[in-house]
Amino acid sequence: MSVQKTGVPMSEKQISSQVGKFTSRGVDVYYGDKQALFGIDIDIMENKVTSLIGPSGCGKSTFLRCLNRMNDVIDICRFEGEILLDGQDIYASEIDVVELRARVGMVFQKPNPFPKSIYENIVYGPRIHGMIDGRSDADEIVETSLKRAGLWNEVKDRLNEPGTGLSGGQQQRLCIARAIAVNPEVILMDEPCSALDPIATAIIEELIDELKENFTIVIVTHSMQQAARVSQNTAFFHLGKIIEFGETDQIFTNPRNQQTQDYITGRYG
C-alpha cells in the first residue's frame, strides 16, 4: 500500500475560478438531541457533478436533503448554519420551500413513480407549477423530458400505462424525467442506482454525464467506481464531518487524508 500524505490542509485548496451554485457554511444538523452533521463547508459547482461518498450513516443523505429542505418534513430534524443557492440563503424566512424544490429537484434511492400513468408522472410537476398551458404544451414537456432521460423510445407507445409497471431501471429514468420536467437548476440524487443492475446503472451514469450540460448534479453513491466515473468533484464524509473535498481525480489518485485513502481503497473497517 502506498500511503500518500501531503501537507496541504484540505480547506486551503478551494476549487478555484468557478462559481459555487450552492455554498454551505457551518451546517449542523440534529435529529432530536443527536447531531448528524458537524460544520459542513462545501461549494457545489455549477454544471458539474459532485459526488458525496462515505460510510453508511455518515450523513450524506442528511446533507443532500438539506439542499432542498426535504428535512423540513422530519419533525425532529433541526438545521443550523447557512446554505446559499446563487448567493441566497435557502433557509431564510422569505424563501418559499415549494419554489425552492422546483429549482432543486430530487431523485431518490428507490424509484418512486406515482401510481399513475407515465404521462401523468411527467406532467404533474409542471402542472402544479403552472408551467403548462394546454394539451400540446403538456405533450411537448412529456416528450422532451422523456427524451432527455433516455426513456422516450422505450415508452412512447405506452404513455398511458402506469409508471409502476416499468422495470426498475426504467422507473428510475422516469423519476429523473419527472425531475427534469419542472426544469430545475440542480438535481439531487440519493444513491439512484443502488436498486439497479449494472446495465441499467450504466445507462443512468451516461445520462448523468449528459445532464450535467444543463444541470448541476449532486449524487450520493456507495460505489467508488461510480463516483470516479461520473463526478468532477467528490466530498468524503465521515461521522457527520467532511474529511476531504476536492476534484474527483485528485481524491481518487492522490487523497490527502489517510481516512479517505483507506475508504476508497476498501480498507475502511
Binding site: 418534513v73 419554489e99 424544490r101 429537484g105 418512486n112 402544479i128 407549477h129 420536467a181
Partner: peptide, 22 residues
Amino acid sequence: PPSIREAALGIGASKMQTVLHH
C-alpha cells in the same frame, strides 16, 4: 408509502397538493 410523499414534495408539491393529489 412515504416514498410517494417524498416524490411529490421532491418536485415541489405543497403539503396540501401532496395530500390531495397523491
